[in-house]
Structure formats: structure tokens, C-alpha cells
Design a protein around this nucleic acid. Structure first.
Length: 560
RNA sequence: GCGCCUGUAGCUCAGCUGGAGAGAGCAACGGCCUUCUAAGCCGUGGGUCAGGGGUUCGAAUCCCUUCAGGCGUGCCA
């Protein structure tokens, strides 16, 4: 619809220039937007204001000239100049109603597009190290990352979901020592307990399982325990597999899945890390100081240089990070998006600097990042403090068990990633109007209930051929139709900006308009034609609610 | 100190690639169920868009600056 109006305005301008009533010959980018207030019509353009300078005329005068040269078409019911020089368009109700037919035809595909034209995009998210259960911060990352994947897939991208983890670094060594200590019956308050060991009770479970020589199967790891408390290497392998399996179970419960699990250790094993270091040295971006090898990241905008190889000979985490991203680049993704907690934001400059220093033609702003701010958890009016080492924190699993998957997912994506999120567990558990998830799901359930009711009275949702859409003319009905029509661009915008929260706002708006309509009008009446038209409208609402909820990985219940 | 994020109604937050009297939900107050789910609807009140400068025909939105909060500033990830 916007495209049609753009064409209309462009042709109008061309006619003005041909007729000599406008002289600058400029065609500005023609922006068609939705006015903030409904009285201003359905769409508006600021084209006349943009031309004011070049034409040296008042915007309103230009607008008046322009609308005289607009061709009459089947779309517009009215065009007028308003405010400082906007041109407002009112679209015929019939044109709006036709979108209902499009929805019925598209069905589950309504809202999808081919913008991505099958290009490959990789989204890395969660990427939790296997040192413990997933916590609430990982939960936010999982919800945002998964929704971004769904949005990109819906807009025609070929999405690869990837989970990267460190299975060999200092934290993992620490994990192995902690499990070993538990195997030997050493408690955290014992002087023999490892410094900075993981104190959580789950470590005891790992130790017990290891001693019992159990076999664990994670999505990407299959290990049988050796059972020997002295074999630190075996303990490490087992602990990693065990905790990965726990994470996999949590992610499954959250309905989040991955295509690729990428191990940091593989970058050492296949020589990528060494190759990266060699390349950086060759390119002259490194120097030795204090027995360490440094990368001059300041050349690429970092505020200080970074150590690559420590005095003890080991590499710092950022070297495999660079190797990993070089690997992503070589896999040929048109885009790579990293979803992470904002507490890791300092890695962005370093990774990009490292990639620039490789001088392999990787663009400066590559890869893209979506950072989510911290989550604070409220329970009983008090903040729950998170302390991983001490093992006291709210896990993702706790949340899913307590408030349900749908509510958890919705709450996590409800705010834009840049905003800190207060997760009030008591509020999330309420099945009340405070809870937007129920509000939206209730709209869907209500519609299903109406269908059931209609069926009992012999009514069915009519097909597109038999329905008379002209019967839908009430303001509440037209409001719904217009909101439904906006869905594809909401999806498009949400995907383009990597902002899942837009879908949650859209859902609340659509659900609100439906509830409003419901309270004002009866669907099933003696008037068979009107009943049929309204059932058709509601089928489109239910379809769109379902599709939108699907983008968030949330169910659309038929009964509540 | 420096970098990133945030500051909008009593509360939680949208709006931020510049556009028309600044929005939603909750809370407060007042209404609506013999009829398809009241987990709902309708109405009322509520604002120096943190403060100050600047750019612009036009700024919550862009730039500078001050203040406040969060995160980071590891040879941890």
C-alpha cells in the first residue's frame, strides 16, 4: 500500500515539473508514514516540506500544487494538505478489507517475506561455558537470540544457530578441580578446597555421577566417567559433558535449539589459533613486552593494547575469539550476529581489531552485535543476588518451572535489549491483567471459544469467496483490519533492527483492539451475513496472533 | 579517569535512521456481566521527555556539555 502511494507521489511530482509549476526538478526520497493521530488519515508524506528549500516556496503551497497533479486512483478516498505541509491520505475501506483476503490466503505465512533472499546469516547466542546451569541472564540471551533467529528466518534468511563454548580454559580447569575436590569429600570451607572453586551443590551431583561411572549424552558430547578421582583430565571431560547436558535440557524446556556447537578447543586442535598468531605477527601488529606477546589493538580504535600470549605461554581468550570469527568469516555468512550480555561488550573492539589486523578484507563493522543489559530478579519484593561461585542464583530452569515457558519468554523479550530488565517473579506468576502474556493469549482463546460456539449453532468460518467483507465497517472493525495489515512491516522492522520487543508491543495492541471489539459487538447474531463476515475477521485475528506468538516461541492456546 | 548502555506520567516501559496537541500497561478514581470466557471493556485525572546550550522550517529523537544510575576498563570469559 505504501509503495502504491510512493508511486502516486512520485508521478505527481513528475507531472508538476513537466507542467512547470514546480521548478527544482528534485525528487526527494518519498517517505510514506503512518500519522500519530488517526484523524490525520491513514498515511502521510512530508515530501512538500523536503522540497521547501529547493523550491524556495512555503511547504503548504508546494503541497497544494502537488495534490492537484496527483492522479485519481482506486486506493485513495481522500487527500488533503495539513499542518505545516503534510499531505494526508485516506485509504478506501475496501482496499483495507482486501488485506483480510491476503491473510486468509497466506495463513501461517502471513507476515513472512523474502527480504533475506536466502542469504546465509549466523546467529551466535547463549554461548555459556559449561561450568554450571544456565542462569537468568543466559535466559534473556536465549529468548532474544532465538527470537532474532525466528525473525530472520521469517524474513527469508537462511539462519544458522550457533553455540560457542570454552571447554579447555582456566575456568574449566577450575571446574575440574572443584569436581575433584568433591570426589575426595572436600568441602568449600576446607583449607584444601581449590581457590575460586565452584561451590554450588550441583558440583556434588557431577562428582557423584563421575564416581558412579555414569554415561552422559549431551547434544554434542558423549562421555562415560572413568571414576578415578586422580584423573583430572577425565574429570574435566566428564564434567563438561555433564553440565552441557544439563544446559541442553534447560534449552529444550525453553524450546531453543542450536544447529552448531562450536568448541574453543577445536581452534587449538586444528591449528587455527597458531595460524592467527602467525598472521598477526607477520602483519607487524604485535610486539613483545614483559615476557608477553601483545597485539597493538590501539591501531584499530582500542584504548589499550592487549596481551595475546601470556608470560606462562598460554593464550588469552581473545586469541581464540579472533580465530573463531575468522572461521565464521570463512564459512561464508553474509551476516554474523552475536547476541551477548553487555558485560562482555569490551570484547567487541578487541575482536574487530584482531580481525582488521589479519588484513583479510573483513569489513570494519563485522560482526554485528546485539547486547542485552543485566537482568535483576525480584522475589517477594527483594532483589535476588546472583553469585555464581557461591552457587546462589536463579536458574533458567527455576524460572521455567515456576512461571512457565511462555511467560518467561515473553518477559525476556518484552523490553528492548538495551534496557535493564527487572524480572519480578511474583508478577510473572500472576494470572491476571498485570500479566501481558495472558492478555494476549486470552484474546486467542476467546476467538477459539467463539468459533466453538458458532459451530454448535451450525455456523462456520466462511471461505474468502463466500464472505461479504463490506459488512465490516464499524470503527472497531476497521481498526482491527488496519492493525492486521501492518503486521508484515512490523515483522520486517523488528527483524531489520534486531528488536524482538516490537512484536510484543504489536501483540498487545492487536489483542487490545480485539477485546475492545468483543465487548462492543456480538459476533454470532441472527444476521447470517454479518456473522459470517465477523467470523472471517476473527479468523484473521487468530491467525495473526498465532503467527506473531510463533515468532516469540510462545503458544497460542485454544482454551484458558 | 576513559568506554558502552540508561534517564519519558506515582510505578514498569514504548516512541529515538528528526515531523503534526508526547503514548501504553499498572496504580488512583468512576462506570459496564440474565446474552459468544469480567484473565475483559468504557471513562477521568496525571508530564519542565534528567538539567543547560547548539543545529534545523521543525528536536523526546541529531551534536556538545553537566548531573544521576548500571556495566566494563584482567596476562578471567
Amino acid at each position: 500500500m505504501k509503495e502504491l502511494l510512493q508511486d502516486l507521489v512520485r508521478k505527481g511530482l513528475e507531472k508538476c515539473y513537466a507542467a512547470g509549476v514546480l521548478t527544482s526538478g528534485e525528487i526527494p526520497p518519498i517517505v510514506i508514514e503512518k500519522p500519530a493521530h488517526a484523524e490525520h488519515g491513514d498515511f502521510a508524506t512530508n515530501a512538500a516540506m523536503l522540497l521547501a528549500r529547493a523550491e524556495k516556496k512555503a511547504p503548504r503551497a508546494i503541497a497544494e500544487t502537488l495534490i492537484k497533479h496527483l492522479e485519481a486512483d482506486a486506493l485513495c478516498a481522500g487527500v488533503e494538505v495539513a499542518g505545516p505541509g503534510f499531505i494526508n491520505f485516506r485509504v478506501m475501506d475496501e482496499a483495507w478489507r482486501r488485506t483480510l483476503l491476503a491473510i486468509a490466503t497466506a495463513g501461517p505465512d502471513y507476515g513472512r517475506s523474502t527480504t533475506g533472499s536466502g542469504r546465509k546469516v549466523q546467529v551466535e547466542f547463549v554461548s555459556a561455558n559449561p561450568t554450571g546451569p544456565l542462569h537468568i541472564g543466559h535466559g534473556r540471551g536465549a529468548a532474544i537470540g532465538d527470537t532474532i533467529c525466528r525473525l530472520l528466518a521469517a524474513t527469508g534468511w537462511d539462519v544458522t544457530r550457533e553455540f560457542y563454548y570454552n571447554d579447555a580454559g582456566a575456568q574449566i580447569a577450575n571446574l575440574a578441580l572443584s569436581v575433584q575436590a568433591r570426589c575426595l569429600g572436600i568441602e568449600p570451607d576446607d583449607p584444601r578446597w581449590p581457590a575460586d572453586g565452584y561451590q554450588g551443590d550441583y558440583i556434588k551431583d557431577v562428582a557423584r555421577s563421575y564416581l558412579a561411572r555414569e554415561t552422559v549424552n549431551a547434544d554434542d558430547q558423549h562421555v562415560t566417567a572413568a571414576g578415578d578421582p586422580q584423573d583430572l583430565d577425565a574429570i574435566r571431560h566428564f564434567a563438561v559433558a555433564y553440565l552441557r547436558r544439563e544446559q541442553d535440557e534447560d534449552l529444550r524446556a525453553f524450546d531453543v535449539r542450536f544447529d552448531v556447537y562450536f568448541l574453543e578447543s577445536s581452534l587449538y586442535a586444528d591449528g587455527s589459533v597458531d595460524a592467527v598468531v602467525r598472521r598477526l605477527v607477520e602483519n607487524g601488529h604485535t610486539y613483545e613486552q614483559d615476557e608477553a606477546l601483545w597485539l597493538r589493538t590501539t591501531t584499530f580504535g582500542d584504548d589499550k593494547d592487549r596481551v595475546m600470549r601470556k608470560a606462562d605461554g598460554g593464550y588469552t581468550y581473545f586469541v581464540p575469539d579472533v580465530a573463531y570469527h575468522q572461521n565464521k568469516w570463512e564459512r561464508g555468512f553474509a551476516r554474523v550476529i552475536n547476541e551477548q550480555g553487555a558485560d562482555h561488550h569490551s570484547t567487541i573492539t578487541r575482536v574487530r581489531a584482531g580481525l582488521q589486523a589479519l588484513a583479510e578484507g573483513i569489513p570494519e563493522g563485522w560482526p554485528e552485535y546485539v547486547l542485552h543489559q543485566m537482568v535483576t530478579v525480584m522475589r517477594g519484593g527483594e532483589e535476588v543476588k546472583i553469585s555464581k561461585r557461591a552457587g546462589s542464583y536463579v536458574t533458567l530452569r527455576d524460572l521455567i518451572d515456576e512461571v512457565g515457558r511462555d511467560v518467561t519468554r515473553f518477559f525476556f523479550v518484552m523490553r528492548k535489549p538495551d534496557s535493564q530488565l527487572v524480572f519480578d517473579i511474583d508478577l510473572a506468576k500472576q494470572q491476571s491483567l498485570d500479566n501481558p502474556v495472558y492478555y494476549v493469549q486470552y484474546a486467542h482463546a476467546r476467538i477459539c471459544s467463539i468459533f466453538e460456539n458458532a459451530a454448535e449453532k451450525g455456523g462456520v468460518v466462511p471461505s474468502a469467496e463466500e464472505v461479504n467483507l463490506d459488512r465490516l465497517a464499524a470503527p472497531e472493525e476497521m481498526a482491527i483490519v488496519k492493525t492486521l495489515a501492518a503486521f508484515p512491516e512490523v515483522v520486517e522492522g523488528s527483524a531489520a533492527s534486531l528488536e524482538p520487543h516490537r512484536i510484543t508491543y504489536y501483540l498487545q495492541e492487536l489483542a487490545g483492539e480485539f477485546h475492545s471489539f468483543y465487548n462492543k459487538s456480538r459476533v454470532i447474531t441472527e444476521d447470517a451475513e454479518l456473522t459470517a463476515a465477523r467470523l472471517f475477521l476473527l479468523a484473521c485475528v487468530a491467525r495473526t496472533l498465532n503467527n506473531a506468538l510463533g515468532l516469540l516461541g510462545i503458544t497460542a492456546p485454544e482454551k484458558m
